[in-house]
Design a protein around this nucleic acid. Sequence first.
DNA 1: TTATTTGCAAAAACTTTGCTGATAA
DNA 2: TTATCAGCAAAGTTTTTGCAAATAA
Lengths: 132, 132
Amino acid sequence: MRVTKQREIILEQLKTHKDHPSADIIYDEVRGVLSNISLGTVYRNLEWLVAKNLAQKINIGCSKARFDADISMHAHFRCIKCDAVEDVDAVFGFDLIKDKDWMQERLLKGASLEFYGICGSCLAKEGADETC
Amino acid sequence: MRVTKQREIILEQLKTHKDHPSADIIYDEVRGVLSNISLGTVYRNLEWLVAKNLAQKINIGCSKARFDADISMHAHFRCIKCDAVEDVDAVFGFDLIKDKDWMQERLLKGASLEFYGICGSCLAKEGADETC
DNA sequence: TTATTTGCAAAAACTTTGCTGATAA
DNA sequence: TTATCAGCAAAGTTTTTGCAAATAA
């Protein structure tokens, strides 16, 4: 488990976020510290962190993948207008599956629960287009 | 709500699927009937069907969007080895959210619940790489 | 020392879009 | 008749990858 400056700073930066940033956001921020880091390195390291279970990748509709340093299984909410992603206090797990025979035939590894709608600040300022 | 041959056949084709195909799969299949349909038309019409609530788009990790002519709110399972997507008999809804004040401040429109793991046929034939 | 990682740039993968001719209503 | 749609090809966006130099252990 080799530690490089890039890797350390990327994880550190991701941990400061509660808003589930995409790779390019992390790239922009990390460049403030390591001015010539490349976007490829950010992508490679985010995937590495996911593989090592130090971060999770969230595919929540829209174009870009989002990342989260909180690896617990938790639900998300995405605003279809501004694309913001926030955590949701919801309870879910494999027990939502009703067919136990079906479960027996597969190896379940995880689940993701995502709500979508319009966030408070977009409800306030009407007129913005839906981004996805 | 204008009906074109392309639109009709794309929806018809999507309805034959229980496996949540991507746009390029539908494209290949529809070309058997309309040999010079373009991929752009397939993308445009799939999005149109989603907008008209005749289909839904599923973003379930991995690279491509998947489509489903079953517009009911239902859970999915994705195999991390072969990328197959199937329906899951699970019960979920906005009632999983515990914080009612939080709900009050947003306009909830939908939810998606996705399980992932290894499907029966991939468990049988070990050795295949995980695709995502 | 050496296997792993980086930066860079090019390529890949997926999706969208501008334009002109075609078509449904 | 006319607003909408199709086909085509080009471009856009996001992510991955090959390679030579750099680096952690």
